[in-house]
Each structure stands twice: as structure tokens, then as C-alpha cells.
Design a protein around this nucleic acid. Sequence first.
DNA 1: TACCAGGTAAAAA
DNA 2: TTTTTACATGGT
Length: 268
Amino acid sequence: MSLLPLPEPFDFELSTGRFRAFGTDLANRLENGVLHRAIGGREVRIRAASGGVDVTPLDDLTRPGVLKLLGAEFELEPFYRWAVERQPVIEELTVKLTGFRPPLQPDPFEALVTSITAQQVSLFSAVAIRNRLIQRFGTQVGHAWAFPTRHRIAAAAEAELVQVGFTRRKAEYAVGLARSDLDLGELAGLEDDEVRARITALRGLGPWTAEWFLARHLARPHAWPSGDLALRKAADVLFGVEVASLGPLLAPFQNLSAHYMLTGTLVP
DNA sequence: TACCAGGTAAAAA
DNA sequence: TTTTTACATGGT
């Protein structure tokens, strides 16, 4: 067990809340204060510690994976200063949620398939379906589960995905994505709009999916999922405005603002 | 039981 | 061109 320092502030409980808010997430398994995650084919156990997190095992392979997963690349201090100076509504959230660091989806294929499962349905439903997908096509490593690989889903029959709860359409989307010629690793080097264009060119991946990919996989500051139902409600409750008109007002911190708005409506 | 839930594409008008 | 519908599942 070794300490991995994280930029302050960091609140483990707040930051990992979404891994249990809608049921147990097998790919990010949070139990008894320990987050279990498969990284590079090994089980990594992560728990809160003073100044960062305790990570087992911690080495040159797991370190970058954990930093990515825990959103270490987000800079919270400039965001908080901006909120104090410019956005009282967001500032209130940053006080309530100090140390909340939005977790990221470390793998692009996992990020996109996760979004497909969450399209239209409740997140409780999405998590249940995704867990069955993981158990059927993924790999168990210790207490954690490695999300199904692109290769594995490419080899799957659409009917098999329907068996775990995908709609026939969503099964086509996921298998189609896996079998497509889109280079997912290449997206990290592209501008926001080019990423949106590449993703939405695929059937079943629309603007909402592309925007969450920018937000939760690429950590792009301006990502703003204005089509998101929960964000729409949060914009109405917190600001009393349409989500689309709110976006530009929150530049250049749309991504962090969206996460704080969503988590803020979740935390009492 | 019926209805809604962190969308999307395709059919119908 | 705009509007309506189908979609499988889990929670209430």
C-alpha cells in the first residue's frame, strides 16, 4: 500500500460518489471505502489517504491510470477562483463540494459503450445492463472487472447484447462502434469539434454521447452536454435558464461546472 | 399498473 | 421540413 499524492483539494468520498449513486458499478467497484479497478489487466485497489490516495499496487503502470481515473488533471483552484469572482451559483456548489474531482473514464471504448447504455434510460437501469455486459464479455481480475475490450465486442453477436438488456438498436450501435475503423486513440489529439464530428459520424453516437466523451474521457474544459436531461433540470433549478444559453456564460469552465451542477443536485 | 428515465435514428406527417 | 414513434429495463 503506497501513497499516491493528488493535487489539493481532494475529497475521495465526494469524487467517487457516482460509482455507487446508481448501484454497484462493476468496472469501478466501490465497496467498504475501497475502489477496485482493473488497470492494465491487474486489479488496483484505491482508498482515501491524507494528501492523496493509497494505491495497491502502485508502480509506473498503475500510477498514470489512477491519476487519470481520479481526474488529477483537472485544475480546481482556478475554477474555484473564477466561481468566486464571476458565478455565485457555482461558487455555492464549490463550497458544498470542495475537493470534488470528477472521475474520468480512462478508456475511450469503455467511455462510448457506457454512454450508449445510458442513452434514454435511467442510470439505475443503465448500470444494471452494463454490469451484465461486463460479466458476460469482460474479465474478472481479483475483486474488479475489466470492461469488455473492443476486440471482444467486435466478435460478439448483436443478439448476445440484447440478451443482457441492450435494445436491438443499441446492440447494433455498440457492435458497429467496435467493428468501425475509427481510431479511438487518435481522438485525444484532435480539436473538440473534430472529435464531435468523428464520433457523431457513427450510427448511434449522437451529440450527447460525443459531448460526454469530451467531458469524461478527454477532460476538455469547454465540454457542455446541453442535451443531457439531468443537466437541463439542474440548469433550470439552479439558474432558472435554458441549458443551452447557460453554456457560454460558464466558459471556460463548462465541464467542471456541469459536473458540480449534477453532483450538487445529488448531494444533500 | 403505468409512467418516466443523464438519446438516437427512422418513420410518418 | 418538422413531428412522432420505437426501443428494453429498473425504480417508483
